[in-house]
């Protein structure tokens, strides 16, 4: 069920979705969004790619395996909790860098909760893609 229109649109849509999902993850701390939504969005992008160009293409475009995404996400989330331990605080207590400004993005806050949210983002995306790819491959067999 290859469609040229779908293939062409996906070519532009996928990168846009990836950037959008990252942005949504980042802005989740102050506005609607966050790791869960970002992760689901990222997987939607690759699901679209898989439907239009086939699973192998989508897997290739992802560059890393979904399992790797899950493992890395869990590790990142775990690591985000560790700095607090150094400062004799409870595990996963949030720590923040001083505020600074960037053009385009405005005031930037960086802290461990953002890192944690990125871990959530990767795990959710990895899980969804894992399920999706597995089902697709079964169907193709």
């Amino acid at each position: 069920m290859k469609s040229i229109i779908l293939t062409q649109t996906t070519k532009f849509l996928t990168p846009a979705f990836v950037i959008l999902s990252l942005f949504i993850t980042y802005r989740g701390h102050n506005l609607p969004g966050g790791g869960f939504i970002g992760g689901l969005m990222l997987s939607t992008a690759f699901a679209l790619l898989a439907v239009s160009d086939g699973v192998e293409k989508a897997r290739h475009a992802l560059r890393v395996s979904p399992e790797f995404l899950i493992a890395a996400g869990l590790c990142i989330a775990l690591i985000s909790g560790l700095p607090a331990l150094l400062g004799d605080d409870a595990f996963m207590k949030s720590l923040w860098l001083p505020e600074f400004s960037l053009p385009l993005l405005g005031k930037i806050h960086l802290g461990t909760p953002i890192v944690f949210d990125i871990g959530v983002f990767m795990t959710v995306a990895g899980f969804t893609l894992k399920v999706f790819f597995s089902l697709c491959r079964e169907e193709e067999n």
Binding site: F36, T128, V131, S134, L135
Partner: peptide, 24 residues
């Protein structure tokens, strides 16, 4: 609820894969 939606999604996705395996 946000947590519940995501966990529920995880459950349903798993069940769907399970069902697909059983069916095939």
């Amino acid at each position: 609820v946000l947590t519940a939606i995501v966990i529920g999604f995880g459950l349903i996705a798993f069940v769907i894969v399970l069902f697909q395996r059983v069916f095939s």
